[in-house]
Structure formats: C-alpha cells, structure tokens
Design a protein around this nucleic acid. Structure first.
Lengths: 273, 273
DNA sequence: CTGGAAACAGAATAAAAATTCCAAAACCAT
DNA sequence: ATGGTTTTGGAATTTTTATTCTGTTTCCAG
C-alpha cells in the first residue's frame, strides 16, 4: 500500500481528466483497461453501475473499484457523484445544446461549430436521399475490377483523395494517389486494366480534369465524385456520383463526401476478395 | 384498481412526455406533485434515486413509485432505464453490426452507406454534447497569436491536416503542413513565436508525437486534436480538443473531426484580422 | 354527518449495487 | 529456479436503493 500517495480527490471533471491522463501510462493491465474505457466513455459514468462499466472494460467489478481508488476517490459511488452533479450540463439534448452554442455570439467558436455541425448533418441526410444507387453500384463494379486504382483530387478535394488512399491501403487494394507533388502528373502510370477515381468540386481543378481526359483517351474507366450532374467531369465519367454538400459561408464540411468515399472504398475492398 | 387501463409502456422520451402531458390534469395531489416536478426536471431521472426525486417533489418515495406505475412502467427502475439509455445514446455495438454486414454477403453498398451516414450523424451529435468550449477558445487563442501555424497529422489524420492547410490558405493564415514527404521532418522550421497544431488518433503515429515533443521543448505552444483525453498528446498540449468519433469497424467517418477542424481554422482566421 | 372508496405515509421487506478481503496467479529481480 | 512483491478474480459482506404492504387519512356523494 502506497501510504505515501495522499492524492487529492478530483473535484471537477477537468481535474479528473488531468489525473486520468497523468496516471494512465503507468497502470497495470486491468487498471489500464479501466482507464482506457473510461477515457473513451466518460459520459457513461453518471448513468452506469459498477457492473456495467466492468463489463464494458472487460474487467471484474473489483478492478473498477480499485481504479476509482487510484483516481483518488474512496470508491465508485464517490466518483460517480462527481459526474452526476456535472450531468445537468451534458443533458440538454442535441437540439438544445446546438441552440446554446449558437446563441453565445455570432462568430464565437462555439457558434461556428454549431453551424458546421448542422451543415454536416444536413449534408449527410441529403446524401441518403439523393444518392443514385445504380451509380454507386456501377462505381463499385468498375473499381473492383481495376488492377490499380488511380485516385486524384486536389485543393479542396485533396483530403478526400488522401482518405481514400488511406482506406485502400488498409484494405490492401492496389491504389495510387496522384498528389501533384513536384508538379509531376504521373499520367503515364495509367495502364490498361486500371481505373481512375477522380474527385473535384467547383471550381474544378484543371489538373484533375486533364487527368480524367487522359484516362478516358487511353480507354480507362473513370469514376467521378463531384458536386453536381453538370460538372465538367460528367462527360468523361463511366459512373458519376454527386454529393449534395451543404455550405456554410464559403466553407463546406465534407461530411457527406467523406461518408460516400468511405463507402466506396470499403465496398470496393470487400468486393475484391 | 383500474383493471381497464392496459397502458403501453412508453418506449421513447417523446412518448413519455406525451403521456405525462395527457394524464397530469386528472391526477390526485401527490401524484400531481410528482408529475409537475418530473416535467420540470425530466433530465434528473437518469441520475437520481427514488429518494432524490421524492425529496424534490416533496412526496414520500412510495408516491414516486405509484407515479411510475401510472405512467405505464412496472416501477422506477424501468422508467429510469428509458432515460439512461436515451442519455448514453449512440455507440451501438458497431463491432457486431459490421460483422452482420460482412456475413450477409458484405451488404450492398447502399447499406454500407447508411451505416457510415449514421456513424457520422452520431459523431456530430456527440461532438456538440462533449465539446469543451474552454478548450476550443484556448486553442483559437493560441493559434491566433502564432506567427506561423505548423500543422501535422499523418495516416488516418492526414486528410484532416490537409484540409486544415487548405482552409488556412484560403483565409490567408500563414501555415505549414508537415506531410512527411521524403521522410523529411522539417523540425527546424519550428521557430519561436510559432505554434503547432497536431492531429493524431489511436494508434498514435510516432512522427506526430515526436514533432509535438520537439515543439514543446522549444517552448512553442501545442494544440492537440485527438480522440481521447488519455492520448499521448495530452501531456504536451496547451489546448486539448477531443473528438468522439464513432468508429464503424476499422473506419471512421471523420465527420466530427472535420467539423471541429473547420471551426478551428475559421475561428482562427477571423480572430487574426 | 357518515359510509365507502381512493389516496396516502411510512415501516418492513426484497432486490440490487458497492465494497472488502483474501487466496491464487503473475511478475520480477536475483 | 526462488523468494518477495504486485496484481488479480471472485466470493462474502455491507450498504444503498427499490418495492410492497398495511393501517390511517382524506375526500366526496348521499
């Protein structure tokens, strides 16, 4: 027993978090599982029993109690009290919370976040409604058969392209990201049997359109991920996926685009095995 | 005993509210007190004991139980469960859902998309609930004062980093993206007066952590965008932003992360002029 | 008033949850 | 390996919490 550790009981959620971060590293296995689970799901403490938490962290209940004590509480009940008292702030459900955020001043970070979150949600909703399933299936079909998938997307679309490249790699799908580093266009990497996945939004970037045209000329199938049916990519595309992303001001959150890209990548990955 | 009132147990908070409104008027005194108190403080149910509620409504505990039964529940525990579940909303067991999807022949792309959209929506909602506004303001403050903002995020976090770099550029905020091209770490580009914005998720990438440590050693402020409070970045961070992203299988939609990143970038951009 | 039905308070009981404790297992330095 | 230390699992115990039950009170129709 470490008689020499007279830890102050955390009095606020912040203190709790600080202490949790501090000790996590040097915890033995079971206690560490507790720490990790609780770090990820802190909010549940207020409404869970010891047994619930123990099950979630996959440890016996007594380990949870020991964890509470290491955190500086006398036991679970005392720790839970901290979160139950703080709970009132967390409750306001999504709509109310969003309103609160908005109301603390136009231009404040909180208000901004509320707008972007809302834009993201609307985009996601619109996506499920507007999606053309045939186009999606066609896109998956085309990409699943490609020997190598070339991914291109620049400027605003670049994050999407890099994410696709990441997921393809995870799924062991041969893919090549055309990132324009060094202004090299790697257009000669487009080989028969390959396919191109091109992403671009208004204002459409020249390089992407050029590469798509190039692929087309060489007879490679092109899948386009873009913002409208009238996109200049439409002409070259064998499968055209449009994403109705909602803008807030000059910015767009990319939520819907990311969701669709992820779907595409995972579906293609699964289809290939 | 009203043998003739086979009330359906409310299954959602809305149903609960509807029923509460319906019966409140024709309730005897004590039960009415319960109804009134609960209508005003519905949120407390999830974290209160019968005794707490009874004290709040100024009735004996048994009256609260009777009230629960009139509301259509077998007792207090059943009623409380409704609210506890509603609070901890989200995070269904994605491991299981993904497995189902796989086993049912990979699921159609459409079904996959629905899952990713749902995950994105939950993440966004959770973000509004869990956001620490102080941390966000602190982060904006730190970055607004930096001469040059260094952005680093690799692998899964890379899309977020590139997106931040894009938005910073749009807003004419001096920023440098550390992308690891050529395995150059550019650590000597960290100059006094600059700040680092580091993004990493479990499993945390070594290079990002190293750069954060480097920045710290040189006395630069570090803003961390990560997935949990126990992240290894927590130690070096002057402002720690955590994003509760719902994973679906091995993948995360990044919706919440993108929304928060965008907020950060735009808020910093505005604050600088 | 008064008789009968509904509502009630609080003590008694049952159920569930938290906590303790200790023997067994794992770990670690020698 | 070996002895000492730390960590662990789970049964036993204590504490808290929910629920039931019963005698009493309140309410109201006649």
């Amino acid at each position: 027993m470490d008689a020499a550790v007279p830890i102050a009981t955390p009095a606020t959620v912040e203190e709790f978090r600080a202490r949790l971060a501090l000790i996590t590293d040097e915890l033995p296995k079971r206690l560490r599982q507790c720490a990790d689970f609780i770090a990820a799901r802190t909010d549940r403490i207020a409404v869970s029993t010891v047994a619930d938490l123990a099950a979630g962290a996959d440890v016996p209940p007594s380990a949870v109690i020991r964890f509470c004590q290491i955190m500086g509480f006398s036991g679970y009940s005392e720790m839970q009290k901290l979160f139950r008292d703080a709970y009132a702030l967390g409750w306001p459900d999504y709509a109310i919370r969003l309103k609160n955020l908005r109301e603390n001043g136009t231009g404040s970070p909180g208000a901004l976040l509320a707008e972007f979150v809302e834009a993201g949600r609307l985009s996601l909703e619109a996506l499920t409604k507007s999606l053309d399933e045939n186009a999606l299936n066609a896109a998956v079909g085309v990409l699943a058969q490609a020997e190598l998938i070339h991914v291109v997307g620049l400027r605003r679309a670049f994050p999407v392209a890099t994410y696709l490249a990441y997921v393809f790699e995870k799924m062991q799908v041969p893919a090549m990201l055309h990132d324009g580093v060094g202004k090299l266009d790697h257009r000669f990497a487009l080989r028969p049997g390959d396919a191109l996945l091109a992403i671009t939004f208004s204002p459409y970037s020249e390089e992407t359109l050029t590469l798509a045209q190039d692929a087309r000329d060489r007879g490679l199938p092109v899948v386009a991920l873009t913002d409208r049916l009238t996109s200049p990519l439409a002409r070259q595309a064998d499968a055209l996926l449009t994403v109705p992303e909602v803008d807030f001001g000059a910015f767009r959150s990319l939520s819907a685009t990311t969701a669709l890209a992820l779907t595409l990548a995972v579906a293609v990955g699964s289809a290939r095995e």
